[in-house]
């Protein structure tokens, strides 16, 4: 509609403004029901959410709250049964086909028969980048995740944390503006997790990507996010959306600050409220 008003001469300019303002992810009244052997499971109920460009959004909630399912809907790995969902203004499936996002799973899932560099090249080979370009990109993303010099190693030669970093590098390699992460640090110990959280924030600041991050750790969600989406189960729904007032620059000790504790408290309240009706 705005484009119509602008007329032909102002078209290019207006388009840019529209794109900057347009949400990356727009979900309206999303519903998803799984049919299983023992009845149907209401995984998502009436989920509405807008994520703008450059945001770091965490989804937190107990298992079965639909946080992973929602992320998988965005990635077009699941299809909602009702409601509308757009990614970059397209349907999720179109967005998947235009390679709009990189997805990081809970397990690194590196191919044991490929080196770290070979693993990062996997999406690049599939997407048809030429060899020189592949090498260039591998070098660049290895540096981004601080794995420079590890390209020739095989996955088993790396620790769990390093493997997960390599899998993040793999998701970054093809320059998708959206990074979807499904409990990427869930299997790692606290010390490694703290370090990777810090690095992830740096990486986010450097690359200015939009990140959707599923977690079940309250400190992790509060520390990382600009927006925290609290969800609760049976049926999976959003109970609270918190816009974080924390600054973009976040040293690890920000977790002792009053604001941090207040947000964490609000998240905890939201999680408890969501549980109220079925305890």
């Amino acid at each position: 509609m705005m484009r119509d008003l602008a007329g032909p001469e102002g078209d290019g300019l207006m388009k840019d403004t529209i794109n900057a303002a347009a949400p990356v992810i727009e979900a309206r009244n999303l519903d998803l029901t799984f049919d299983t052997a023992d009845g149907s499971v209401h995984a998502l109920k009436d989920v509405s959410l807008t994520i703008s460009k450059g945001e770091f959004v965490s989804f937190i909630g107990p298992s079965g709250c639909g946080k992973t399912t929602f992320l998988r809907c965005i990635a077009a790995l699941e299809t909602p049964t009702a409601g509308t969902l757009t990614v970059n203004g397209m349907t999720p499936d179109e967005a998947r086909k235009s390679r709009a996002y990189g997805y990081v799973f809970q397990a690194a899932g590196l191919y044991p028969w490929r080196t770290i560099a070979g693993n990062i090249k996997l999406p690049l080979e599939i997407m048809g980048f030429d060899r020189a370009e592949q090498e260039k990109r591998v070098e660049r993303v290895l540096e981004l995740v601080e794995l420079k010099g590890f390209g020739k190693k095989f996955p088993w030669q790396l620790s769990g944390g390093m493997q997960q970093r390599a899998s993040i590098a793999r998701a970054l390699a093809f320059d998708a503006d959206l990074l979807l992460m499904d409990e990427p640090f869930g299997a790692l110990d606290e010390i490694v997790r703290d370090r990777l959280n810090e690095e992830l924030l740096k990486l986010w600041a450097r690359t200015e990507k939009t990140i959707g991050f599923v977690t079940h750790s309250i400190p992790e969600a509060v520390y990382l996010s600009t927006k925290i989406v609290v969800m609760s189960p049976r049926p999976g729904r959003i109970t609270d959306v918190i816009d974080s007032p924390l600054p973009k620059e976040r040293p690890l000790d920000i977790r002792d600050s009053r604001e941090f504790i207040e947000i964490a408290h609000r998240v905890r309240e939201g999680l408890r409220a969501g549980h109220g009706d079925d305890v």
């Binding site: 390679r99 899932g109 093809f174």
Partner: peptide, 10 residues
């Protein structure tokens, strides 16, 4: 998960 990963690459 491996198959999903490839699906995300289309």
């Amino acid at each position: 998960m491996q198959l999903d990963l490839l699906k995300t690459y289309n």
